[in-house]
Amino acid sequence: MSGQYGRKTLPGKQTVQCYIGLGSNMGDSRATIAEALERLSELPGVVVEAVAPLYRTAPVGYADQDYFLNTVARVNTTLTPRQLLAGLQQIENDLGRVRVIRWGPRTIDLDILLYGQQTINEPDLQVPHPRMGQRAFVMVPLADLNPEIAVDGERARVLARRLAGEQEITRLD
């Protein structure tokens, strides 16, 4: 996805590079993801550096639903993981996200995939995001942005190539 991201700077502050997963399968998913990216770029303390292409992907976990559009954004942030999570959840709420069925249909889903090198294991926040290394809809766009980043002890490009052969995923952009 292209956009006017990365123009804002965070002068004089320590930043952390993060990766955010975005997905949607309700309504105009392309427009919703674009709006979510715009709102993400407007969060104080967040600069969106790059966004991977959009992918059309089969649902995982709960199969009785429409296909998803997915992408990954690379951001720099001065926010703590909790502050970033709160910002992402506010964007989801503003864009009509309703949590009814686990892994079910959604207008928008925003997940912290990686927060620098940190590992966080709390009931409502797990980083690296659980199961990301098993999902093509995360690994393929992540590999577009950083093919050499390690996930589950393997390079993103290796995981992406293997998962793309096992799971249905089609690049749209």
Rank of each mutant, 00 (worst) to 15 (best):
V48K: 01
V100T: 14
A156E: 00
M1I: 03
Q14M: 11
P44G: 08
I149F: 08
G27W: 05
N70C: 02
T78C: 08
V75H: 08
S2P: 05
P147Q: 02
D94F: 06
P141C: 01
G96Y: 02
D28R: 14
Q65F: 09
A63M: 15
L54D: 09
L10W: 06
I108K: 10
A156C: 03
T32Q: 13
P105N: 10
E38C: 12
A150V: 13
T170D: 09
W103S: 06
V98N: 12
V138A: 07
M26F: 05
E38S: 13
V98F: 02
K8Y: 02
Q83L: 03
V151Q: 07
R56M: 03
T57F: 03
N121V: 14
L95C: 12
R135A: 00
P130S: 05
V100D: 14
C18E: 08
A143R: 03
D144W: 08
D94G: 13
V46F: 07
R161D: 14
T77C: 05
A36Y: 10
Y19G: 00
Q90P: 06
I120P: 10
I33Y: 10
L163D: 00
T119I: 13
V138Y: 07
G12Q: 06
I112P: 04
T77I: 07
L54I: 08
L159G: 05
G45C: 09
T119S: 07
M139V: 04
K13S: 13
D66S: 11
A73V: 00
G153M: 06
M132Y: 02
Y62F: 15
G21K: 03
S29A: 15
F68W: 09
P128C: 05
D144Q: 14
L84H: 09
Q14T: 14
A156P: 05
G61R: 10
D124E: 15
R155L: 06
R135I: 11
T78S: 15
V151P: 09
R161W: 10
L142R: 06
K8L: 12
R39M: 15
R162M: 09
E122M: 13
T15R: 08
R157V: 01
H129Q: 00
D152S: 14
T170Y: 12
D152F: 00
Q4H: 12
Y5G: 04
G153A: 06
R30F: 12
I101V: 15
G61S: 11
G133Q: 01
P44S: 14
V151N: 00
L113C: 09
L85D: 10
V48D: 00
I120G: 13
G45M: 01
E148Y: 04
Y62D: 07
I120A: 01
P81R: 04
L84R: 01
W103P: 00
Q134R: 08
A143P: 06
D144L: 06
Q90A: 15
